[in-house]
């Protein structure tokens, strides 16, 4: 081990452990181990990362209130600091963290809201691709339609929830006082798309998420429709397929 490596190990440890002593060898012109000065680094690391999470999870933050969110994010940062300097990738584990974070145990839907906001972030930065035009649907030969396979747009994300996650998210994404959403009103599935540069969140009809998952997994249109019908007897293939294409979720289709 080099001296520099030891220095940086001690520095990083002290940043993430508020009770740790300032490492030896760190000085100001007036004293050794200046605690307040070292605290500037501690503060910079935490405040900046909490701010990243606040920007990434604005609805979770609104639901918890600013102070509670910041305290929650601080614990997350301490236990799950970023592993990449590309901070658009930070926060992927936040929903799993919320699932087991005792102080939010009475908000069982919160983790799903975080999952939706993370999906939004992934869609925002996903690769660019032109979705297929709605006319593509009209060009499908009915006889061969069942054997088509679909390429989903790179931005497409699905969030399935036992709670009304899309309603909670959209109500708290708007300006103004949010309407009360009954968390017991039943589950919702969200489709996140970004046909151009603007991310859109759509509430899927029942069976829609199973249908899209099956398509994403490489199943043919016919197979995916069966999967969806197994889950939801009222699944409307025509409407779901038209909705998917109209929302810009499909980047290509071809015979299997």
């Amino acid at each position: 081990m080099s001296r520099l490596s030891d220095t940086q190990t001690g520095f990083a440890h002290a940043v993430f452990n508020a009770d740790a002593a300032v490492p030896e060898g760190i000085v100001s012109h007036l004293r050794r181990q200046p605690r307040k000065r070292f605290g500037v680094y501690r503060n910079n690391v935490y405040v900046s990362l909490i701010s990243v999470l606040e920007g990434r999870f604005p609805v979770v933050s609104r639901l918890l209130g600013e102070d509670f969110f910041k305290a929650t994010a601080r614990v997350f940062v301490e236990h799950h600091p970023p592993t990449s300097p590309v901070l658009m990738r930070y926060g992927g584990g936040f929903s799993e963290f919320l699932e087991t974070f005792e102080p939010v145990a009475d908000l069982p839907w919160l983790a799903d809201v975080a999952r939706l906001e993370w999906a939004w972030n992934l869609a925002y930065h996903a690769a660019d691709k032109d979705p297929v035009a709605p006319e593509a649907l009209a060009a499908i030969e009915p006889a061969s339609a069942g054997s088509l396979v679909f390429e989903l747009h790179p931005a497409v994300q699905l969030v399935r929830s036992a709670f009304p996650v899309v309603s909670i998210w959209s109500e708290h994404s708007k300006d103004g006082e949010p309407e009360h959403i009954d968390a017991g009103a039943g589950g919702e599935d969200g489709l996140i798309v970004r046909p151009g540069i603007a991310v859109e969140v759509r509430h899927l009809p029942r069976g829609g998420a199973a249908f899209i998952s099956a398509l994403a997994g490489g199943k043919t249109l016919g197979e995916a429709a069966e999967v969806a019908l197994d889950e939801e007897a009222s699944f409307d293939l025509q409407a779901n397929l038209a909705g998917l294409i109209a929302s810009g979720a499909i980047a290509g289709l071809r015979p299997a």
Binding site: S2, R3, L4, T7, Q8, T9, F11, A12, V15, G25, Y41, N44, V45, S48, L49, V52, P81, P82, T83, S84, P85, L87
Partner: peptide, 21 residues
């Protein structure tokens, strides 16, 4: 420096000025 042991600290941390650094 800002990365150590696979963790990114998101601050511009100082280095000692010596031959090794």
């Amino acid at each position: 420096w800002s990365t150590h042991d696979g963790v990114y600290l998101n601050d511009l941390l100082p280095v000692p000025y010596n031959a090794e650094t």
